[in-house]
Amino acid sequence: METGTFRGFEVALHDPGIGLITFNQPDRLNGMTQGMKRDLVEVLTEAQMDDAVRVLVLTGSGKAFSAGDDISGRPLDGSTGKQLVPDIGRGHADPIGTYSALRAISQRLNTTVRDLDKLTIAAINGFAIQTGMSLALSCDFRIASEDARIGSGTLRFGLMPDEGGQYLLVQLLGVAKAMDFLMRNRIVTGREALELGLVHEAVPSGRLLDRALELARELAEGPQVAMRMLKRSIYNAAETSFAGALDDIAAKTAVTDHHPDAREGIAAFREKRKARFNGG
């Protein structure tokens, strides 16, 4: 995975195989442009294909994770950031253009995150609104600062949670609570998000990144092949029958049972030591 400064974000790689993506436009609350989203998709695709990357952490700088789409029209600060993909038409000039732009650009960022085999952690440092909320909810783990602010807020403008937020909220909260959350334009703190079940942990803001990286190290040291297959089976189980889930996990177990990580795990248990999984 390429590291450095890109349009609207920075990428760093930490041992043992932790990719850290930091949105770096705090003056605009890390609002996202279409170009930034397409570059993020490219980086995420690189991470998927890079054996050196085991876990991804996404976070923001300043007061926001991401407060939504950047509609200011101003060019991104730090124009020296590398552009990974060429600019294309932004769409939205007419109904079919809006449909196309949502499906091909905005929604694709969230589907790319969800489709990664590698585990993802959203470290929600501040405002996570609309685009920011749906991106955070697309991640496998979410840790929020206690004073973060998380919500959709689109109805305030007569708009829709058009990047998949309604689906992700129904998955996490159920229909009744998702209805309340969206229809009443609720924006909750990190502590409230923990009570609702939107995030896994809420920590003091000064501890957020350290805690996210601590979790990332724990996950990165696990049996990567089994964990990636289990991740996919968990998401599949949410959308299939019991019989389908059983067949899915059996097919994946036929791979993982014969992987070197399984032999190492059994040997470590017998020898009463910590397993050293190779992640290959």
Rank of each mutant, 00 (worst) to 15 (best):
F277Y: 15
R142I: 05
S100N: 14
T22Q: 05
G8N: 02
G60K: 07
D39F: 03
V255W: 06
S106Y: 04
G35Y: 01
A251F: 00
L56R: 00
I249K: 12
Q34Y: 13
V11I: 04
E195D: 15
A128L: 09
G174F: 12
G132S: 05
I88A: 10
A275I: 05
G280T: 09
V113D: 02
I96R: 14
M160S: 15
L169T: 07
E214T: 12
I96L: 11
G35S: 05
E264M: 13
Q224E: 10
G4F: 06
H14C: 05
G164P: 09
M49Y: 01
Q130C: 11
E46C: 05
H92Y: 15
L116H: 02
S72L: 01
V203Y: 01
G68V: 04
D248L: 12
H92R: 10
L84H: 09
T240Q: 11
A93M: 07
R263H: 03
R103V: 13
Y235H: 13
T120M: 00
K63S: 13
Y167I: 14
M179I: 08
S241H: 06
E2S: 12
V85H: 04
G78E: 03
D247A: 12
P223N: 09
I105S: 11
A148M: 10
I71A: 05
G78D: 09
D70V: 06
G280W: 04
P260A: 06
A220Y: 08
I96K: 11
G151T: 09
T3S: 11
A238Q: 11
R207D: 13
S134Y: 00
I150V: 14
T98M: 06
F277P: 07
R207Y: 05
L209W: 15
Q130G: 09
F127R: 05
D51S: 05
A12D: 08
G190F: 04
A52T: 09
E146F: 02
D257V: 10
S241G: 11
A144G: 08
R149P: 06
G222N: 00
L40N: 02
A178R: 12
K82Y: 04
A104N: 10
I121S: 01
S61G: 10
R263M: 06
F277W: 10
I18N: 01
R142D: 02
D162V: 04
D261R: 13
R149K: 13
Q171P: 03
L159S: 13
D210H: 14
E163R: 01
I150S: 04
T3D: 00
D94C: 12
K37I: 06
G126C: 07
L215E: 03
T120P: 11
T3W: 02
G89F: 09
V85S: 01
F127P: 00
L246I: 13
G151M: 10
G62Y: 02
G197K: 11
L246A: 11
I266F: 06
I96G: 00
G17R: 03
D261G: 14
L194H: 15
F6D: 01
E214A: 08
L116V: 02
N278F: 03
T240F: 02
L208G: 08
N125W: 10
S100A: 03
A202W: 07
I71D: 07
Q25V: 05
L173F: 04
K118Y: 05
G97V: 11
P204Y: 02
A176I: 12
M227Q: 12
